[in-house]
């Protein structure tokens, strides 16, 4: 009798803990929908960035987007459309110029990107300071996942949908270009368009990300789940699935922690993703540190 009552209390407690905030508050449901959509698109993108040794490209692109979004903000205030368009344009211009320079000159991708994103950043800061207004860029820097309106939510979901569809379309050339670019060049001209489309998807997801998590943390939900996936999977497909699931879970758990502990939600989401990553780094099935250090006898063949 006592145990049954205890069990009932426990159930109620767990229910309140795990689902209560989402049942009770609409903004929590919106936030959950937002982070889920974000994770589904950004996770797979992150996996390809990692496999192409472009893990820091996301970060650089986030810097390149910031000025575009800031200009949008200057022109028409906190308007979803202006800031999104500004960010998209700035990001795509930088991505396109980077891709062209890397393919047509001696400069490698990393150097080309570094030059253009720094230019974009400097240009953006200049424009902002010339206007001299003390604008509130906190929104852009740290996002506002707890205040997603319908429009923003739709845009994030739309971007995730576009990402998954385009990724499915360019999947084969993208994979072959990662493994054996010379071969792809010898059989097809699909490499360059696939690469540029992929860069556009990176920008799209960062723009989605900055509304929810801010430009600085948007990269987190892209790269951390991807790196987590690498410790559990030996093939790309599984890696993508793990990254998307990890990102989704990070969104859910991060929002809960943020609600119960009263910490800012964006960082909480990324911290959960970070904890998942650290656990995988230690205990991961594929090359995790603990597994490497375990004394294991070698096999016969």
């Amino acid at each position: 009798m006592r145990s049954a009552a205890g069990g009932g209390l426990m159930e109620i407690f767990m229910y309140d803990l795990l689902f209560g905030p989402f049942v009770e508050f609409e903004f929590m449901r919106r936030a959950l929908a937002g982070t889920t959509a974000l994770a589904l698109g950004a996770g797979p993108i992150g996996v390809f960035l990692m496999l192409r040794r472009m893990s820091l490209v996301g970060d650089a692109m986030a810097h390149a987007i910031l000025p575009g979004a800031a200009i949008g903000f200057l022109v028409s205030g906190l308007s979803l459309f202006a800031m999104t368009a500004g960010g998209l344009i700035a990001g795509c211009v930088v991505a396109l110029l980077t891709g062209l320079v890397a393919r047509m000159t001696e400069l490698k991708e990393d150097a080309a990107l570094a030059t253009f994103y720094l230019l974009s950043l400097a240009l953006g800061v200049t424009i902002v300071s010339m206007r001299g207004t003390n604008i509130d860029l906190l929104h852009v820097l740290f996002g506002s996942v707890l205040a997603l309106d319908n429009q923003t939510l739709l845009m994030i979901a739309g971007n995730a949908t576009i990402t998954l569809i385009v990724l499915a379309l360019i999947y084969r050339p993208l994979v072959i270009e990662c493994v054996d670019p010379g071969f792809l060049r010898s059989v097809s001209g699909a490499g360059a368009p696939a690469h540029l489309a992929f860069l556009a998807l990176v920008v799209l997801n960062l723009v989605s990300g900055f509304h929810a998590l801010g430009t600085l943390l948007a990269v987190g939900i892209m790269m951390l789940p991807a790196a987590t996936g690498r410790f559990w999977a030996r093939d790309v497909t599984l890696m993508i699935v793990i990254a998307a699931v990890c990102g989704t879970f990070s969104g859910y758990a991060g929002l809960l922690i943020s609600y119960h502990a009263g910490v800012p939600s964006g960082p909480a989401v990324i911290l959960v993703a970070g904890v998942l990553y650290l656990l995988s780094l230690l205990f991961g099935h594929v090359g995790g540190l603990v597994r490497q250090m375990l004394p294991q006898r070698h096999l016969e063949a």
Partner: peptide, 30 residues
């Protein structure tokens, strides 16, 4: 077959998929 193929050997792909690239003429992108 180039002398030094630019193959990223750390990429998680198996022998079957790698050989299957040879079918590009038939399969194309999709």
């Amino acid at each position: 077959l180039p002398q030094a193929a630019e193959i990223d050997r750390s990429f998680p792909i198996n022998v079957f998929d790698m050989v299957a690239m040879g079918l590009w003429r038939h399969t194309g992108v999709f």
